[in-house]
Design a protein around this nucleic acid. Structure first.
Lengths: 206, 206
DNA sequence: AATTGTGAACCTCTTCACAGCT
DNA sequence: AGCTGTGAAGAGGTTCACAATT
């Protein structure tokens, strides 16, 4: 497949979510122009994004919402259950165990790893909190696909390396630090400080 | 000032965080090349980003970490306290009241707004949970600069409009939906579903 | 000798504009 | 007539490469 840009993938994910909403509202067809309005982008962008993956529309009519959602789901790999583990049972880690949006899209949070012995052995929203030292055995048993890093910045790199060594290739990083990983591993950052500081910049200069 | 790209602002924010870490480690000087390694980018990118705002380095030597951190702090507006309110006392909203990274950088969370009467009047990590109906009076009293939206997608647009009408110009949106706002208002999205679905795409196609 | 600051080259992503379908 | 799909043009962001400076 041709190289797909990150921005295209992100927008595909947004189309997917908007389509879910449209289907709930019993909308059966949508044009690239309408979709563009929902996402605050241009209609050419919508059509171009979709065109990387195929021809899903009907000229003169638009796109069938249910069909397009299914197609995008397949493209993004959401027709599949992904096993996820969180590292860190702090505020963020615990909040994520109850983030229903993840479960709804096929991301199953099976474990929270922790090093704090007072938390190990307990549960959080029904998810077992497990000793990080048992990561290896747990990794095999649960077939973990994705690790969510929710530990302080100073431990994030070490945690990441530990799971890279076990074979994990996908990380969602909440620690405010840039992780160093091999080429075949992907990290997506959820850096709340960066976003709020961008707002600060805007308020000062915008 | 010349138009600064979003990516440059985000990287400035990352440099700022890396500089804090370097200063803690008593590093006094850093070259663009070293900084680039930390951030996984090129040294030309580091120099170009900084050059939009001035000349902060010394040729042959590099950048003084303390000076550069101060400069970037001013550029980003972090030499100032910003008053922040969260809307929604769910998992994410509550977790954010205890996100120390925010306080450390001058973002002061003064209020959590809620509509659920059983939560109103209580506190979360020392922050009052206030009736959303009292937003107007509270907005004036607290001089709110930034609103963090942590409500379900279906309420996010209405919440946003309510505060836009009160005069808020900066939003950090955790709801997985694209918000429609006037030109003079900025929204930054923290869309965890988008990031994890990008990982799914990578695992399937990468 | 080392490293910055920057115009120019390069590359990537977005938008235009229209042929081609329905 | 209306809307998609797409090659070409345009805009914007990144990297190169080197003169300038310490």
């Amino acid at each position: 497949m041709k190289k797909i840009s990150d921005s295209t993938v992100r927008r595909m994910s947004q189309y997917y979510r908007s389509l879910s909403r449209l289907i709930e509202q019993s909308v059966q067809t949508i044009s690239s122009e309408k979709m563009a309005q929902i996402e605050n982008i241009t209609s050419a962008q919508v059509r171009k994004d979709l065109s990387f993956f195929g021809s899903f529309g009907k000229r003169g009519l638009g796109y069938n919402t249910v069909e397009l959602k299914t197609k995008i789901g397949e493209i993004l790999g959401l027709d599949h259950q992904w096993n996820v583990a969180i590292v860190g049972a702090g505020n963020i880690g615990r909040a994520l165990t109850d983030y229903t949006e993840f479960n709804r899209q096929g991301f199953f949070i099976g474990t929270v790893f922790e090093s704090d012995t007072s938390k190990i052995g307990t549960q959080c929203n029904g998810v077992d909190i497990v000793d990080i030292e048992k990561a290896k055995i747990n990794y095999k048993k649960k077939a973990i696909d994705i690790i969510i890093i929710a530990v302080p910045a100073k431990h994030a790199q070490a945690v990441c390396e530990q799971f890279v060594n076990l074979g994990v290739r996908a990380f969602l990083n909440f620690a405010p630090i840039s992780l160093q990983v091999p080429d075949n591993v992907v990290v997506k950052n959820e850096n709340m400080s960066v976003e709020i500081e961008s707002l600060s910049f805007f308020l000062r200069n915008g």
